[in-house]
Amino acid sequence: MEVGYPDHRRPLYLASSINQIPIKRALVDMGAPMNLIPLSTLQAAGISERKIQGCPMEVTGFGRKGEYTAGHIQLWLKMGPIASLARFHMVKMEVSYHVLLGRPWLHKHRLVSSTYHQCLKGRMNGKMIRIAANPSPFEQVEAYLVETMFYDQWAPSGESSEKLELILLLKEYKDVFAWDYSEMPGLDPGLVVHTLNVDLEAKQVAQPTRKFHTEIEGKIVKEVEKLLAAGFIKPI
């Protein structure tokens, strides 16, 4: 497999999301025995420190310098087609990554990483998957970070922060929205109404019964039952 930069020194940064909040720099590090998340990422995602559990642990970095974590937290991580809960140990230090994914996450999903080929590879549901690196993990305002020297293009400035602010706003006012049929009783027809524009004089023709895959049919039955229970539809 050829790479665009045969003599590059790029780290393996992947785009992902934490609790549905997009992040640009998930650093994959095969040498790390745990997954790490800095306090700044938790704050940007609107996650309270009070959710941190467990006792501090010492982690040793470059030069054998020791730092202590503040505990751990379970977060929903989505990386490409892979979505699952992951345990992160929180650190209060300035780092260039948004999260660091070590051996626990890689081994859990049986993934092989390559900084040279800038990707992760593995198998999911019997099929080969490949998750490519983020080609532009830094914004221009982050040019002071040393690792930006390895990249020749910037992420769109402000786009990610605006999207993050919008997601946080929607989460703050999530009680305004209806998330289930049962939360919409007595919906005012003056607000919205659905009609079928049919010719009442047209001859009615019974259509043949449609057959679905058993898995899809089960989902259809569940949705119909929800609509019946909420009174949105009724048998005729």
Results as ranks from 00 to 15, higher is better:
104 P>E: 13
145 L>N: 01
202 A>P: 06
74 Q>M: 09
209 T>I: 15
5 Y>V: 09
231 G>I: 03
56 P>Q: 15
144 Y>Q: 10
125 N>F: 14
159 E>L: 15
236 I>T: 10
177 F>C: 03
137 P>K: 14
202 A>F: 15
95 V>K: 11
43 Q>M: 09
9 R>F: 13
226 K>H: 07
172 E>Y: 05
63 G>N: 07
123 R>I: 02
59 V>A: 00
183 E>V: 01
195 T>H: 15
139 E>R: 15
76 W>G: 08
153 Q>M: 14
9 R>T: 06
65 K>P: 00
207 Q>W: 04
125 N>V: 09
155 A>W: 11
234 K>V: 12
69 T>E: 04
90 M>K: 11
63 G>K: 13
139 E>V: 11
72 H>G: 02
100 L>P: 03
116 Y>Q: 13
236 I>Q: 09
82 I>A: 02
35 N>M: 07
83 A>W: 00
208 P>C: 00
82 I>D: 05
140 Q>V: 13
53 Q>H: 08
219 K>G: 05
94 E>F: 12
185 P>V: 02
210 R>C: 04
144 Y>H: 15
78 K>Q: 13
80 G>I: 01
185 P>H: 03
208 P>Y: 00
196 L>R: 10
221 V>H: 08
3 V>K: 07
126 G>E: 00
80 G>H: 02
29 D>H: 06
8 H>K: 01
39 L>Q: 12
172 E>M: 04
27 L>G: 08
236 I>A: 10
187 L>A: 14
121 K>G: 14
202 A>E: 14
202 A>I: 10
109 H>P: 02
187 L>G: 12
167 I>N: 08
227 L>V: 03
218 G>E: 13
4 G>C: 05
68 Y>H: 14
143 A>Y: 06
1 M>K: 02
65 K>D: 11
77 L>P: 06
57 M>G: 04
7 D>C: 08
108 K>H: 10
233 I>F: 08
20 Q>C: 10
32 A>S: 15
179 W>D: 14
189 P>H: 08
113 S>A: 15
28 V>E: 04
115 T>L: 06
99 V>A: 04
91 V>A: 05
123 R>E: 06
12 L>C: 10
212 F>A: 03
141 V>H: 04
28 V>I: 15
31 G>L: 12
68 Y>F: 14
138 F>Q: 07
151 Y>E: 01
25 R>S: 07
99 V>R: 00
152 D>M: 03
7 D>A: 11
73 I>N: 10
7 D>M: 13
58 E>C: 06
